[in-house]
Design a protein around this nucleic acid. Structure first.
Ligand SMILES: [Zn+2]
Ligand SMILES: [Zn+2]
Ligand SMILES: [Zn+2]
Ligand SMILES: [Zn+2]
Lengths: 145, 145
DNA sequence: GACAGTAGCGCAATAATGTAACAGAAATCG
DNA sequence: CGATTTCTGTTACATTATTGCGCTACTGTC
């Protein structure tokens, strides 16, 4: 995996230790993480743990398509197909907060037509589906922590 | 407009003064508002202005399809077609933070197929497009306050 | 290597957004 | 009316995010 990131490095971006570490944390977790959860991991690793540290690294990772922000959860997740410019879509489980990334281009369909008709120039779309994941179909209530 | 809300009242929900007031504030503004901006308006109107007051009213309005949350902005906006159960989509201008509501059902297309294949039960989808609105096409930079 | 310019990082302080918990008021129903 | 439920007021706190500033580390030119 670290190979793909080195490649992304070649568009003039510096994949520093800190950014690599944050990316590793996200990969390791495999689930959406809040910025402050990332900071905890950074602290455990002996690095600085002030909020801007995490937010800046995340901004970088997002800009280079290595991670995404899940708006609904105010959380961040490693991309499943890092380094490729793409339009991600997420399926978010409301019971376990697990997230699956897939691909969607709503701008190609009806939304795109509406936007063109309105003179709105779409640059990016966010699609997040809320529901219940396969592992949670039996669960009735939210376990909550 | 207040007629439509009374109708929604008929599904057993109580459209109290406070909830009406918050809805009016959103309608009046015609733009997304943060919860704390709503609280300011409530204070000006002589009502209580503690955060839970706004959040509870908003929760109610959203549950009854009178308003929506724009996740990208952490802000709330009056629905353009209140009272109808529907799947809204937003076009958000990154320059002026203006929002236009339209309609989208990504769950009917490729995303729905992916979800079914994965065993994920979609209950609701959030679609938000970021771009530039017709009024801002000339603007280069973000005016920012 | 010396130097200037730029990008990244450490840190402090604070802003903005959102919730939990509980008590009192008000509507609803018998 | 009393019992029940729903709504509201309030305190206190939790979570998420940003601004600003100064220092360090890299990058390129001379
Ligand atoms: Zn991705
Ligand atoms: Zn789940
Ligand atoms: Zn709507
Ligand atoms: Zn605009």
């Amino acid at each position: 995996m670290t190979i793909a990131e080195e490649r992304c490095n070649k568009d003039g971006a510096r994949f520093t230790d800190l950014r690599r570490k944050v990316f590793e944390i996200l990969l390791m977790q495999g689930r959406p993480m809040g910025a402050y959860a990332i900071l905890e991991q950074l602290r455990d690793a002996g690095l600085s743990s002030q909020p801007p540290v995490a937010y800046r690294a995340l901004e970088f990772l997002i800009a280079h398509d290595l991670a995404h922000k899940v708006e609904r959860l105010n959380a961040f997740v490693a991309c499943v197909n890092p380094g490729q410019t793409h339009a991600p879509a997420f399926m978010i489980c409301r019971l376990c907060d697990g997230v699956a990334e897939t691909h969607a281009e709503p701008a190609r369909g009806a939304l795109g037509a509406t936007a063109r008709a309105a003179g709105f120039q779409i640059e990016k779309t966010m699609v997040e589906a809320i529901g219940v994941c396969p592992s949670c179909v039996d669960v009735k209530e939210r376990p909550d922590q």
